[in-house]
């Protein structure tokens, strides 16, 4: 049994089924990320004074990731163009590049997560506050070793741009520590929404990588049976990937630059 318009466009609507389905899915994705962006703005506007941090994220790495994802969007576009021109070799090349760029993006994201996860804020029993990266190998059961700095007031922690360069190794006895918390989602609302949004976005990137890996590998068998159907699949997967890029285009300024 054949379902109509799986490959060719319906004359009056001008699209084939999967394309309309993908756009409908993307519409729902717009609302999903729209909900999260709305939450971000809502929470940020309503944040109590002196609680919203700035400049905590690594802008060069974020910029690099933006460019990587933009480049991968272009390579997907070219992979689709190659399919339309019936050039399987070019399709393989560009999809391979997309896969590579997607994986590098995820790698960099993973490094950024790790960087935040090992970043600690220590509150001592005498009221002093230290922040910095945990030096794992040197920390013992008695003392914590941080590569970081002392601050007098928690508010000083909020601006991440001014603190760089003045960090040194601090050894703090565990007995003095009142509270020790890493920059995990629970640390504050900014980190919570940072992890949630980029995490969900990362899952989408991962999903896109899996889809492209399939199309690059076993899925490309369809090429020899029905190149047009395969081209449609590449186009639809590309639409998804471009949407993932679009989300990052807004995530980057919203989280890294403001």
């Amino acid at each position: 049994m054949e379902i109509a318009y799986t490959v060719h466009a319906r004359p009056d609507t001008g699209v084939y089924n999967a394309k309309l389905g993908m756009w409908l899915f993307l519409a729902s994705e717009v609302m999903l990320f729209g909900g999260l962006f709305s939450a971000y703005v809502f929470l940020r506007v309503g944040a109590p004074p002196d609680t919203w941090p700035q400049g905590w994220l690594n802008v060069p790495l974020g910029t690099l990731n933006t460019l990587l994802l933009a480049a991968s969007a272009v390579t997907t576009f070219l992979a689709w163009a190659a399919c339309k021109a019936r050039r399987l070799d070019q399709f393989k090349l560009h999809t391979g590049l997309t896969l590579l760029l997607g994986c590098i993006f995820l790698g960099i994201k993973g490094y950024e997560y790790h960087d935040k996860w090992t970043h600690y804020e220590l509150r001592l029993k005498d009221g002093r506050i230290a922040e910095g990266h945990l030096v794992g190998p040197k920390s013992t059961a008695e003392a914590v070793v941080l590569k970081g700095r002392w601050v007098e007031d928690r508010r000083q922690l909020l601006d991440g741009r001014r603190s760089r360069g003045t960090w040194q190794e601090l050894t703090i006895p565990r007995a003095d520590i009142d509270r020790m918390q890493n920059y995990a989602p629970r640390h504050n609302t900014f980190l919570a929404i940072y992890y949630t949004m980029t995490g969900l976005h990362g899952l989408h990137v991962l999903g896109g990588v899996v889809v492209f890996a399939y199309l690059w590998g076993p899925g490309s068998r369809l090429w020899h049976v029905d190149p047009e159907h395969f081209t449609n699949r590449v186009e639809v997967a590309g639409l998804f990937w471009h949407f993932v890029d679009l989300v990052w285009i807004f995530l980057f300024p919203v989280l890294y630059l403001s």
Binding site: S28, V30, L32
Partner: peptide, 14 residues
């Protein structure tokens, strides 16, 4: 369903 459910999914994740 298509357009109203995703914001709840976002809220559910949060």
């Amino acid at each position: 369903l298509l357009l109203a459910f995703p914001p709840l999914e976002a809220a559910g994740i949060m």
